[in-house]
């Protein structure tokens, strides 16, 4: 039987959740035995080369590229897992959601902020190649169907491990009190 295939990505996140995945210590050797990685920053595969079983999403969607990648993941993965506060509720990037419209955020960042020193032409980055910023930061499950959620900032390594093993083996998730934390 072929090994289940896993893909991962970090959208509007800080890679902390990926770090936490690496935090499973020596169990990473077991993980390599259990699964095969496809598109992921872990193995640096940039595009999907085959259909995957599990897609792990870190970060929410703050720009058009995030949306594109997330939809690609939904297309190419049987199961999608939102990992971490940002994927689940937008997290720190979403702190702009309730404070100011995006126009104000951009103007503050590129025009008005005290640390802006040399933008005499008053340009807000607008190169065609840049992703377009969304009006607010969206939790992943508002854009595509997400099957599982693993909270935490970052989620405890044990939570990610327990959940992954359960998904791969088809067993019930073992989620002791200590592993579900939002911070």
């Amino acid at each position: 039987m072929s090994k289940p295939i896993v893909a991962t990505t970090s959208l509007a996140g800080c890679f902390g959740c990926h770090m936490s995945l690496l935090d499973i210590d020596e169990r990473i050797l077991d993980l390599i035995e259990l699964v095969e990685f496809n598109k992921s920053p872990i193995d640096d595969i940039k595009t999907f080369t085959k259909q995957c079983d599990i897609g792990i999403i870190e970060g929410g969607c703050c720009n058009s590229e995030n949306v594109h990648v997330l939809k690609e993941f939904r297309k190419n993965c049987k199961i999608l897992v939102s990992v971490g506060e940002c994927a689940i509720m937008g997290g720190l990037p979403a702190m702009r959601n309730n404070n100011a419209p995006i126009s104000e955020c951009l103007e503050e960042a590129y025009l008005n902020c005290v640390s802006v020193q040399a933008n005499d032409e008053k340009i807000i980055p607008n190169d065609e190649e840049l992703p377009m910023i969304l009006d607010r930061v969206y939790p992943c499950h508002e854009i595509v169907k997400i099957d599982y959620f693993l909270p935490g900032c970052a989620p405890r390594a044990d939570l990610i491990w327990n959940a992954l093993v359960a998904l791969v083996t088809g067993n019930e998730m073992d989620l002791p009190y200590e592993v579900i934390k939002f911070d």
């Binding site: 058009s64 951009l106 065609e128 377009m132 910023i133 969304l134 009006d135 854009i143």
Partner: peptide, 28 residues
């Protein structure tokens, strides 16, 4: 599952602020 997310609508304001024409085709 039906998503109510609308990419076209979501990028309007930032593109306007950055003086840019939304590019919804292609890679995005």
């Amino acid at each position: 599952f039906v998503s109510e997310f609308n990419l076209d609508a979501a990028v309007q304001e930032s593109c306007k602020t950055a003086n840019r024409i939304p590019n919804l085709g292609g890679a995005h």
